[in-house]
Design a protein around this nucleic acid. Structure first.
Length: 659
DNA sequence: ATTAATCCAGTTTTT
DNA sequence: CTGGATTAAT
């Protein structure tokens, strides 16, 4: 089954082992065989840790181990660095609540916007740029402070470094006070809790070339006897996330006893495909010599170049080719550099009734109703979550971000820091909204005229709550608070019960009404009843889907976190695979179409200019090409008639010898 | 001051 | 399609 090279790697003694595995050389089989070997040698399943870049990859390997070790396989600790980190942290503190990068960015922005950048000669980085630099910094730098790093990067920003650092500090404090954790925090927290992490006999790391310094520190924090790392220099495509090729390159220096194994027999692609990939990657400076032996000689066909006058002609023609292809649709992939390319293809395929799946179909989880649903869950499981509270309260008429924030802070005060207590058993504060310590005499007078009466509100149960005195609280706002109090008073356990209760709540029905009305709004401002009903039904169907998903979970935190962060890993449907190059990593298909091979698009020259490199773009091309087993189409269009842009063919087509 | 509505530009890759 | 900016309304 295994060839001698693979077998040698599998048989490696415990210690520091590095396997250099080019595309299609049976990397997965080798890892699976290694795990089986460990199990045969009586290593306990729970002493094996498998780290991958997607949870799907981990699940696939475990599934294969399961065939020979049905009992042990599930006990192996496996997943992405982040997923595994989450599990460990959860065992230390069971109430972890993750927040999406998007939300954290909004939080970051709100802090940024309070700073005064006037009277400065340098144009400061935009909030979102700074946020991304910070994330990159967390992933790659340890020795320098953020401020030091940023001025080293660009000395013009030296005068701003102190302000940047101040923003970061406030951001971190606020994040902690809201009980939020981001992706990076998952790894950073594990490193901080180093001593409390259980130890392992062997840790296996897939896609080792894409690990960044933060992940390397994470690995160092794990106590283990043996490391088994698998990677390929030419497939390093995560530099933008801090992936550091030195980590794999310096393996033997860092571990003097390290052994290195090479897998050089390619079983995946035909020789034409492999030759094309190698011709292009040869333009990159070689870190080590690459000599690949082709093992797959069935149906060898030359890769084909497709040229189109217009971008959309391209999508149509490719959809047509796929429609007519005799290859099973699951065995076909369309691969692109930028996700924007997917929409055109998807539409063209749908038109022909060809099913397709798009990984990370954000769409569903980006829907307002889904966000609202999970915002309510977030408030219920994390009463510190000001952001979700604001999002929800804003659906009440007359309530905006400012009043919502006032209410939240008022409730926290009435509950001595606890929102739930503030709603259910509030302290009887005279004025829960007073801003800090004001002049006492003035404030007393001032507030008397400002505060409203609690008895303004009808049909609510929390009549005695001091926050009802907020002068700008609307009837609907009060009803929202009341309903929130009711939801808090329920003792809900199962994730699906959460969804059910929320679905039946006044708050959620108001939100559904608002959203459906918005979607049914005509140009003249009237609401089309038919569209409204239709929009409503669609929303309820999505909620039902969520309720269904929730049934697979017993723990609401797990469910929430999986939905908020893992949503991109869920793929819907079946059929043709629509994938970005990054998402295609580790996968293989019989028939592959690489589209939009135009200079500026692929290579993405905007990114090259900003922070990337042409070498990385070339590796991306290499990864895309080597996904193909038998049939490969490379395609480009000369013109985009919608945007009126002319294109030149990608340089990679020339390097491949196709032009 | 705050919220609501409306119009305009822009859109990188992942956990 | 969404975030941002601008404007009208409370």
């Amino acid at each position: 089954m295994l060839n001698t090279e693979q077998q040698a790697a599998v048989d490696a003694p415990l210690g520091y082992n590095l396997v250099i595995a080019s595309a299609g050389t049976g990397k997965t089989s080798t890892i699976v065989a290694r795990i089986e070997k460990l199990l045969i040698n009586k290593v306990r399943a729970e002493d094996i840790l498998l780290l991958t870049f997607t949870n799907k990859a981990a699940a696939e390997m475990i599934k294969r181990v399961e065939q020979k070790f049905p009992k042990e396989a599930q006990r192996i600790e496996a997943g992405t660095f982040h997923a595994v980190g989450y599990r460990w942290l959860k065992s230390i503190n069971s109430n972890l609540v993750l927040k999406s990068p998007k939300e954290l960015k909004t939080l970051f922005k709100s802090i940024y916007e309070r700073r005064d950048f006037t009277r400065l000669e340098v144009q400061p980085y935009a909030a979102s740029t700074l946020f991304e630099y910070y994330s990159f910094y967390q992933n790659s730098i340890e020795e320098l402070s953020f401020g030091e790093w940023i001025q080293k990067r660009n000395s013009e920003h030296a005068p701003l470094a102190a302000i940047y650092e101040d923003i970061i500090q406030e951001y971190e404090e606020l994040k902690a006070s809201y009980g939020f954790l981001g992706f990076n925090d998952l790894l950073l927290e594990v490193i901080r809790h180093k001593g409390k992490i259980k130890s392992f006999k062997e840790v296996l790391v897939d896609e080792y070339q894409d690990t960044n310094n933060l992940q390397a520190r994470f690995l160092n924090a794990i106590n283990c006897e043996s490391l088994f790392c698998v990677g390929d220099y030419d497939q390093s495509i995560f530099a933008f996330n801090g992936a550091n090729i030195d980590i794999i390159a310096s393996f033997t220096k860092r571990y003097p006893d390290a052994r290195v194994y090479n897998l050089s027999k390619n079983y995946r692609s035909t020789k034409y495909i492999l030759e094309l990939a190698n011709r292009v990657i040869a333009h990159n400076k070689r870190i080590y010599p690459k000599r690949l032996e082709v093992m797959n000689n069935r149906n060898a066909k030359s890769p084909k170049l497709l040229v189109f006058e217009d971008l959309y002609d391209q999508y149509e023609a490719i959809a047509q080719k796929i429609y007519l292809s005799s290859t099973p649709k699951e065995e076909i992939a369309v691969i692109f550099r930028n996700n924007a390319s997917a929409d055109g293809i998807e539409a063209a395929l749908r038109q022909r009734g060809v099913l397709c799946k798009r990984k990370g179909s954000r769409s569903l989880f980006d829907m307002k109703e889904i966000q609202a649903l999970f915002d309510i869950v977030a408030i219920l499981i994390n009463p510190k979550d000001l952001l979700s509270f604001i999002h929800i309260l804003q659906y009440a008429k007359g309530i905006g971000a400012n009043i919502a924030k006032d209410l939240f802070e008022g409730l926290q005060r009435c509950g001595e820091g606890d929102l739930k207590k503030g709603l259910l058993e509030p302290l009887d504060l005279y004025d829960p909204f007073s801003k800090k310590e004001r002049n006492y005499q003035l404030a007393l007078f001032d507030d008397l005229s400002q505060l409203g009466s609690k008895s303004r509100f009808k049909e609510i149960a929390i009549l005695d709550n001091p926050v009802l005195k907020h002068p700008k609280l609307s009837q609907e706002g009060a009803k929202f608070l009341d309903e929130l109090a009711r939801l808090y008073s329920l003792r809900i356990k199962k994730p699906s019960s959460y969804i059910e209760h929320i679905k039946n709540s006044y708050i959620f029905n108001e939100i559904v009404n608002t959203l459906a009305a918005k979607r049914a709004k005509q140009k003249d401002g009237t609401i089309d009843e038919v569209i409204y009903e239709d929009a409503r039904q669609k929303i309820m169907r999505r909620i039902a889907l969520m309720e269904h998903l929730a049934k697979r979970y017993n723990d609401v935190y797990r469910f929430y976190n999986a939905m908020v962060l893992g949503s991109s890993e869920m793929e819907e449907g079946e059929g043709v695979n629509l994938l970005s190059v990054h998402a295609s990593k580790g996968l293989e298909f019989r028939e592959v179409y690489i589209v939009d091979l135009m200079e500026t698009r692929f290579p993405n020259l905007k990114l090259v200019a900003k922070s990337g490199s042409i070498e990385e773009e070339r590796r991306l091309f290499y990864v895309a090409v080597t996904r193909a087993k038998e049939i490969l189409y490379l395609s480009f269009a000369k013109y985009d008639r919608v945007k009126r842009v002319e294109f030149l063919p990608s340089r990679f087509l020339k390097e491949a010898g196709l032009l």
